[in-house]
Amino acid sequence: MSQMITIELNGQQQPLPTGSTISDLLSIIGSDGKSVAVLVNQHIIRPENRPTHLLQEGDQVELLVFAGGG
């Protein structure tokens, strides 16, 4: 059984297998990632870096989308 880490995803605890990348996280939560901005510890992670960016224990991940607003 693989080791697990816990990250903070949009303010909520989210367990993930050790060695997960941002792309893995997006697929776990059912997002294709196309219209989602990803921030890890307040840094923007560009789409081309998501398949290789490894998430670490305690990382704060924010996923943002465009919603209605004036």
Binding site: G11, S31, V36, L64, F66, A67
Partner: peptide
Amino acid sequence: VTVALRRFNREQAEDDLFGPL
């Protein structure tokens, strides 16, 4: 057309307006 940034919510996929707009 204006839009606002919000946290992704998998329960409210309709919130994501980028594609349709």
